[in-house]
């Protein structure tokens, strides 16, 4: 036991922080990355421009508005904000440690990969949350100024759903980030996935295939805007006669709120578990 004593003295008698404490440390310094990088600033500038634009459009339109009606105009842009947030705050969160070689500095420390992953995820979700909450705050303020009547709970439900969609999209971005070899590829794939690929798949399954795509993450995320409509829209089928004897049927499906919450939670959990497995096994090559 002499040996142990000598070592304790050597290390200044320090005990290692718990996994959770280290997670907080990782998150803290990762948040600093966003505060100092142009990404958070960039997304906030885009957000500000969009807010100004929508405010100008709503403000100059003649029709009378309710508070919710005004806010609904703003909510239309939220899913694009989430795509941008997931891309910029999640797309290269893991891969950059490998590609830009900062992993050589971080990984030899006595800290578990799970703490690193959790800390980074917390900070990315925090940045996303900041973007969304600011956006809704401005939208609500605009609604109260320009609209008539009161603020309904639907607005807060929409905010809640947007945060949940933000978290699950971020988890998918982290999964991409833990698999992809290059940062740029990871960023592009994350953006393309949420902006394009998922939408195409979802409409192939739904509008054309006639199967309700309740299990698709972007479909579930749609709840954040549909929740603003009163009453909540219901599934419909539309048939068009395109030529005599030939008709074309399209389906309009709407996500159910509680099922969609479950789907988004499932995506978030599954993606983060997979991201952890890939991250843990991933080697610091070159």
């Amino acid at each position: 036991m002499m040996e142990a004593n000598v070592e304790a003295v050597k290390n200044g008698g320090r005990a290692l922080p718990s996994d959770l404490q280290q997670t907080v440390v990782v998150a803290k310094y990762d948040i600093m990355k966003y505060l100092r990088s142009r990404r958070l600033l960039g997304i906030l500038i885009i957000e500000a421009l969009v807010l100004v634009l929508i405010t100008a459009l709503v403000g100059t339109s003649e029709r009378p508005h309710t508070v919710d009606g005004v806010i609904e105009q703003y909510v239309g842009f939220v899913s694009i904000l989430i795509v941008l947030g997931a891309t910029l705050f999640g797309g290269d969160a893991i891969v950059s440690e490998y590609q830009s070689r900062t992993g050589f500095l971080l990984f030899p420390n006595p800290v578990r990969k799970s703490s690193i992953l959790a800390g980074k995820f917390a900070s990315s979700v925090g940045a996303m949350g900041l973007v969304l909450v600011t956006y809704y705050a401005v939208a609500i303020a605009a609604g109260l100024v320009m609209g008539d009547g009161g603020l309904s709970d639907r607005v807060f439900a929409s905010l809640g759903l947007s945060l949940l969609y933000g978290i699950s999209a971020m988890a998918v971005a982290f999964l991409i980030s833990s698999i992809m070899k290059g940062s740029t590829g990871a960023l592009i794939l994350t953006f393309a996935l949420f902006f394009l690929i998922l939408n195409i798949i979802t409409s192939l399954i739904g509008q054309l295939g006639g199967t309700k795509p309740w299990f698709m993450i972007d479909f579930a995320g749609g709840t954040l805007s549909y929740i603003m409509s009163d009453p909540y829209p219901v599934d419909t089928t539309m048939s068009f006669e395109i030529a005599p004897g030939q008709s074309f049927t399209t389906y309009l499906f709407y996500p159910e709120v509680y099922l969609s919450i479950g789907v988004m939670v499932a995506y978030a959990v599954a993606a983060m578990v997979l991201a952890y497995i890939f991250f843990r096994r991933r080697e610091m090559a070159a």
Partner: peptide
């Protein structure tokens, strides 16, 4: 290990 890179913003 090798020449590590640092977080450029720190």
């Amino acid at each position: 290990v090798e020449t590590p890179e640092f977080y450029p913003f720190l």
